[in-house]
Computed example of a mutant assay.
Amino acid sequence: MAPLMTRKQFLTGAAVTSSAMAIRPARAASHYFIRFGLDLSTDHPTTVNAMEAAKKIKDATDGAVDVKIFPNSQLGNDSHMLSNLRSGAMQMMAIGDNILATLVPSAAIDNIGFAFKSPEMAWNTLDGAVGDIVRADIAKTGLIPMHRIWDEGFRQITSSTKQINTPEDLHGFKIRVPPSPISLSLFQDLGAAPATINVSELYTALQTHVVDGQENPLGNIETQKFYQVQKYCSLTDHMWVGYWLLVNGLFWNTIPANYRKIVEDTFDAQAQAQRAANQKLDGTLEAKLKQQGMEFATPDKAQFQAALVKSGFYKTWKAKFSPALWAALEKATGLTA
């Protein structure tokens, strides 16, 4: 007769089974289910193109790989989703590089203030040598990045109280920034009073004047309806932000190689489409937001960059990155510290 299982053995076995279930997809034979979370609205180009990728992946694998998109922070805020992704409680997410930098510091390299002159320069930089270094660092954390970063775009400053035309207008200004070290650093060095608030809580924080302003790409300002609680928009282009698509590494390795290639190739192809769609949307939004009551200004960006030079922002951040990574950024953009 087999020996009876002790309570300790039973509990240990249950814990192992629970952990394995968190990492592995809920699936029947040869079926892989991917819960994909992101913080953007249903109509944002990132969500739209992620849904298109999901459809193509399901078709290309005859239903073997089923990606379900959860927008609007349905699976939690960015920090919560990143924690769940690492634990295996969810399989995939899209996350801004500025927030990913809390786990992978090198991911903040493309958030260096005024580093890029155009979206195309940002894409080429992240598709190339700079991105290669960041992707390797992401992989060290047990997460698998898709090769191509998606476009969130240049960030602009909005306010409910005044137009931001010069760095002096930011002095003491209560502005929301994402939970990102480089975002905090940039606005502190410009003399503002930044506060970190997750995007899911931002509308209410603006409405109740916990903060008087925020900074986001125009696409987010429109889709999150911030124009309802913000009157002024300053087109500073102070930071470019991309979205990394990440998969839990243990889960990724449970998928056969041919399916992994389909998933990665499809998401990377949709990255190209998403970039174009986001830029097209961005080009129409100033006029649309003006119709919704926002007033726009186009300040001299050189003044803001000069203020960052004077504060030591660039020297500080150069010292935080590896020499190889900073050299790759300088080569791609012409930026110097």
Rank of each mutant, 00 (worst) to 15 (best):
M1R: 14
T6V: 00
Q224G: 04
S118Y: 10
D59Y: 11
K140L: 05
Q292I: 00
H31M: 02
M81R: 08
L170G: 07
T158P: 04
I138L: 11
K301Y: 02
D189E: 12
T223L: 02
W317C: 02
G283K: 06
T166H: 06
Y259R: 08
S311W: 13
G37Q: 05
I95G: 10
A193H: 15
I69Y: 05
S19A: 15
F313Y: 15
M1D: 12
P178N: 03
A14N: 11
K140F: 03
Y243M: 05
T46F: 15
A271T: 07
Q292P: 02
S118K: 09
S160P: 12
A306L: 07
G249E: 15
S79D: 06
Q214G: 12
S118N: 11
V263S: 13
A328Q: 05
M21C: 10
F173P: 04
V309E: 11
S159P: 09
L245S: 10
M90D: 02
E286C: 01
I112R: 00
S106Y: 00
P3Y: 04
A129K: 08
N49P: 03
Q224D: 12
W326C: 04
E286Y: 00
A273K: 15
A327L: 08
A2V: 01
T333C: 00
L335E: 02
E215M: 11
A26G: 10
I99P: 08
T42L: 10
A2M: 00
K140D: 09
D237V: 01
L38M: 14
I112A: 01
E201R: 15
N165A: 02
Q292Y: 12
G191K: 09
A205V: 08
G283Q: 11
E52R: 06
K290G: 05
T42K: 01
I57E: 05
G312S: 09
V134A: 04
I133C: 11
I99H: 09
P167C: 10
Q156N: 15
A193T: 12
L285R: 10
L38K: 07
G312N: 05
N278F: 09
L281P: 03
I221P: 05
T102G: 09
A195M: 11
L235Q: 04
N111R: 01
F187R: 05
N77P: 00
I138Q: 13
I57F: 08
